[in-house]
Structures are given as C-alpha cells and as structure tokens.
Design a protein around this nucleic acid. Structure first.
Lengths: 150, 150
DNA sequence: ATTTATGCAAATCGTTTGCAAACCT
DNA sequence: AGGTTTGCAAACGATTTGCATAAAT
C-alpha cells in the first residue's frame, strides 16, 4: 500500500531530517525507507530484512535507530518481542494509531477524526499538567484480534 | 498510594480470579499483590523484588505471569526495556491510562472522563470493524517527561 | 587523509526454563 | 502419595557492540 506522500517526497523529507541530525542518507538507509514506504503496515526487522535483500542485520538495527532519532522512522514496541517499524508521521504527514493483534502481534494503522484527536489531546494535556508531566504526544492502541486470527 | 478498593477486597478478587484459572493463591503471590497495591504507580521487577524481600527473581517472573493470565495483574511494556506491572483494572475497578516518561521510563496513571472514553471507544470500534478487526480494549499513553526529569 | 558506514562475530541483559527440593491438599 | 510451587543456575533470544574493512567527503 502506498502512502499519501510520493516516494520522492519521502526521500526528500528523509534527507532533510537526516541532514539536520548530521547524518548521511546512505544507500542502505534509502533502501530501508523505500521498504517501509511500500509496506502496508508496520514491519518487524525480520520482514524488513526479507524485503530489502542484502542488508546486514546489525547495520539494519543501527540504521533504523539513526532514522528513528532523525524522526524519519517510528519504532513500535507492543510486547510481543519484535519491535516494528514504520515511516514517521512527520514524514508521511498522516497522524494515526494502531490496532494490535494479541494473537499474531501484527499491527495495523487506523485514524481517528480530527475532532476526537483534539478532545483527547486537550484532556490529556490537562491531566498531565496536574502531575507536572510535560506531554509531547500521545499514542492509542486498540488491542484485539486481526481478521486472520479470529 | 492506596487505590480505591481495600486490600482485603483486592485479595478476594485476586483469589476468585486465580481459582477461575485453577491456580492457587500462594503466599508469594499474595505478597506480589500487596506490593503492587501499595505502589503509587506501575513497578518494574527490580522494584518489586526490593519491596517484597525474599522473593526469587524467577519465581516472581513466573508468578507475575500467572497473575497476568488470571487477570489480576497488568503488564506494561513501553520500550524502555523493563516491563512494569500494576494491579489490573478488573481488580482495582479504576479504568485509566498512562503517562510515560521518555527519560526515566517511569509510568504514571491518569484518568480521562467517562464521556471521552465513550467517544474514543465507539470511534475505535467503528474504525476497527472496517478492517475486520475484533477490538477488545484500548490503551492510551501520553509520552513526555515526568516532573523529575524536565 | 579523516571521518563515517558496513558486516561479521561476539557480548549483553531482561526474561525464560530445567531440575531437584519444599510445599500443599 | 500426587500434583504444584519454589529457587538456583543455566539457557534463550532480540538487540547491541567491538573491530577491521570499505565507502564517502
């Protein structure tokens, strides 16, 4: 599934963000970005390595961390013990949340209305402030069973 | 910080749930429940072991898993690499969400209004249904910095 | 010429597991 | 007795890291 932004727009955004972090946009990193762009939903490292043939596992971990720190990639940790990766919202421009399958660990993207997002954001901000907590962003997961696991 | 339900109510609820899973409520498990009940927020295993002196680490992992499967305890996996545990909402009776500190990994509890919870629930259910996803419950985290880390 | 990225193999560390002794009913 | 729980020590496995080579500036 192709996201809203085109691949070249995404490469541009990635390049820009990496430069801001004094990082290079190497062929391996480009390949990671392309692989994640083509994936229909967040991918565990195993799948990424299968898709982007030729990448070493350790370099992939390292590059995903670089891309994460630069804000190009987002790491999703659910509890089943493989982290999953997707392009960051800053790069795709699409704020969304996740459906997490308790059986297979798969993660799907889902969006809520802007109106509801605003309500959530402001109520969370209020609650956080009362505890001196400085909130930066929220994440919402719906836990359940995906269509192939029911 | 003591939760709404009294300790004996919590022990009763725990006992009942364990029995439904054909599990015993052993002294070690009672000690874990008490420790979590007394804790002001979700605790990593390290803290649990400090609080409930004398427990072996491996037995504690095993018992927390038993308690989790019985629905007495809830495991929180954030991404900083220590799982954290708290009494389950089914036992405490208090639905809530989490503030997660990106610096120290600490997790604080926070509640939203019932009205907002309903809105979130129904919009998530709708979005999930469109993907054939069978949603069971949601979790919401506010990511940011806690008062001691800012 | 330096600095940075890569890939291999080895190390790390939270968590899980094997097993024999202690515990319950 | 028969099954469960415990604690120790060993195993596990996803991720990280050391190091020597290759690539980039």
């Amino acid at each position: 599934m192709t996201k809203g932004a085109s691949l070249s727009e995404i490469h541009d955004a990635a390049l820009q963000r990496l430069r801001q972090s004094d990082q290079r946009y190497t062929p391996n990193r480009r390949k990671l970005v392309e692989t994640l762009h083509e994936a229909p939903h967040p991918q565990p490292i195993g799948s990424v390595l299968e898709q982007a043939a030729g990448l070493a596992q350790s370099s992939t971990y390292r590059n995903l961390t670089v891309l994460e720190n630069a804000g190009v990639v987002h790491r999703i940790v659910t509890g089943d013990d493989h982290a999953r990766f997707e392009l960051s919202e800053d790069v795709t421009g699409a704020h969304h949340h996740h459906l997490v399958c308790t059986q297979c660990g798969n993660v799907l993207d889902v969006a809520l209305s802007d109106q509801l997002e605003d309500l959530i954001h402001s109520e969370l901000a209020l609650a956080a402030a009362s505890k001196g907590f400085n909130g930066q962003h929220h994440r919402i997961d719906l836990i359940g069973e995906c269509v192939t696991c029911v």
